[in-house]
């Protein structure tokens, strides 16, 4: 059996404790959470089927695709937003139940911990995008494949902004049920950002305000491969600006948290 003298070959783990094993276990845990799976993988597809499969939407063209494809991309962005936000917000639960305190009794580096959370969030985001795209392709979303893939890739990469948002909120709101607050919040942001209803349906004042909300930029950029959009610079600025705000916010709350140890 083991000797309990102070051994000299003790080391701290490489990469601050980050490993594929840790990532795999965290993903397995998230997939076990039925509510998370329903909200990220099922609901966006259901919304898409409700709003996007009208006969006219399949025949009416928008840029290089049909309206069904356009709505599919919007719903994929919505799904990725929920997935990445809830992935980031997992830190709230872990803080609330004291798991982060338990982890402080291990060599796990806080940066490695955040990296795992971000990667789990982004993996869920990818799954959310793929789920909506698969359903969309089955029911008549029409867009050339390379444009479709580009839409998906942009939606996914831009949802990093919401992973940061989730982390920020996760550190700001130390509650076990943080997604019950964030879920409705994300629905409002999605509506305001033109994911559920095109901004052209809004009054001028509301459309202007909408362009300042965080879901707007991600949605516009993700639908850019349809062609014909003119406000891409504004959309990119929106994504970058909100990304900076959320990353700085998360970093600020996180440093407060680790100071307290």
């Amino acid at each position: 059996m083991s000797t309990t003298t102070v051994t000299t070959d003790r080391r701290v783990p490489p990469l601050g404790g980050f490993s594929g094993r840790l990532l795999g276990l965290e993903l397995r845990r998230l997939l076990r959470n039925r509510r998370a799976v329903i909200f990220t993988l099922v609901m966006p597809s259901v919304f898409f089927l409700l709003f996007g499969t009208d006969g006219d939407y399949k025949s009416d063209r928008v840029g290089a695709g049909n309206w069904t494809a356009w709505i599919m991309v919007s719903m994929a962005v919505y799904g990725a937003m929920i997935a990445t936000t809830s992935g980031g917000a997992m830190v709230a639960t872990e803080r609330a139940v004291g798991w982060s305190r338990q982890l402080r009794l291990t060599p796990l580096n806080p940066v490695a911990y955040i990296a795992v959370k971000a990667l789990v969030a982004m993996t869920m985001g990818l799954a959310a995008v793929v789920a909506v795209f698969v359903v969309g392709s089955l029911v008549g979303a029409d867009l050339p494949l390379w444009r479709l893939l580009l839409c998906g890739a942009i939606a996914w990469v831009c949802s990093l902004v919401f992973a940061a948002f989730g982390l920020f909120m996760g550190y700001l709101l130390p509650s076990e049920n943080v997604m019950q607050i964030l879920g409705p919040g994300l629905a409002i942001l999605s509506f305001a950002g033109g994911l559920f209803v095109p901004l052209s349906q809004f009054s001028d004042v509301f459309a202007t305000i909408a362009k300042l909300t965080p879901a707007y930029g991600v949605g516009e950029l993700a639908r850019a491969p349809f062609g014909g959009e003119d406000d891409l610079a504004l959309a990119a600025l929106n994504v970058v600006a909100w990304g900076v705000v959320f990353v700085l916010g998360a970093a600020w709350r996180m440093s407060k948290d680790t100071q307290r140890v």
Partner: peptide, 12 residues
């Protein structure tokens, strides 16, 4: 350490 305050995750 075995800490009283160290929480565990229910889903693991």
């Amino acid at each position: 350490a075995v800490m009283q305050t160290g929480g565990l995750l229910k889903d693991f």
